[in-house]
């Protein structure tokens, strides 16, 4: 698969550091943001193929960030990855265009596959339109 870029958004900086390190080892260009605001600023600087987004964060919450991303960068695929086991939030996330709603702790292998699928979906859609 061609290289692609991922932005991970989570207020747990330990979690971010670990997962970015592990994704980078697998040759994926991964960056992290610890808040929704920071994530939107980073995307404005340079859009990414996929965003992995936590739900519960201080400041702007994950669903708000998701809506902003889907408005400003509709081609960016968003995967929710969270410890927030709320049915309503999950449904709303999916309805706002998230590609999937994964529960922590996620298996890295599964996350990798999801990222690849997201990129494939995005590229396919771009070639369609």
């Amino acid at each position: 698969m061609e290289p692609f870029s991922v932005l991970l958004v989570d207020d747990e900086s330990d979690f971010l550091r670990t997962i970015i390190k592990r994704l980078s080892k697998r040759g994926i260009e991964a960056a992290g943001a610890t808040s929704g605001e920071e994530a939107l600023a980073m995307l404005a600087e340079r859009p990414r193929d996929v965003v992995v987004l936590d739900v519960k964060m201080p400041g702007m919450d994950g669903l708000q960030v998701l809506r902003r991303i889907k408005t400003a960068w509709p081609d960016t695929e968003v995967i929710m990855l969270t410890g927030h086991a709320s049915i309503d939030t999950a449904m709303e996330g999916m309805a706002c265009g998230a590609m999937d709603y994964l529960m922590k702790p996620a298996d890295l292998e599964d996350l990798m596959y999801k990222l690849e699928d997201a990129v494939r979906k995005k590229r396919l859609r771009c070639s369609c339109s």
Binding site: A85, I87, A90, M94, Y101, L102, M103
Partner: peptide, 20 residues
């Protein structure tokens, strides 16, 4: 309850995706 909640939530998300 962690298992109960996260399984139910993930399951609903998957079924929702199927309908979509």
């Amino acid at each position: 309850m962690y298992f109960v909640r996260s399984t139910a939530t993930t399951l609903l998300a998957k079924v929702y995706a199927m309908i979509g």
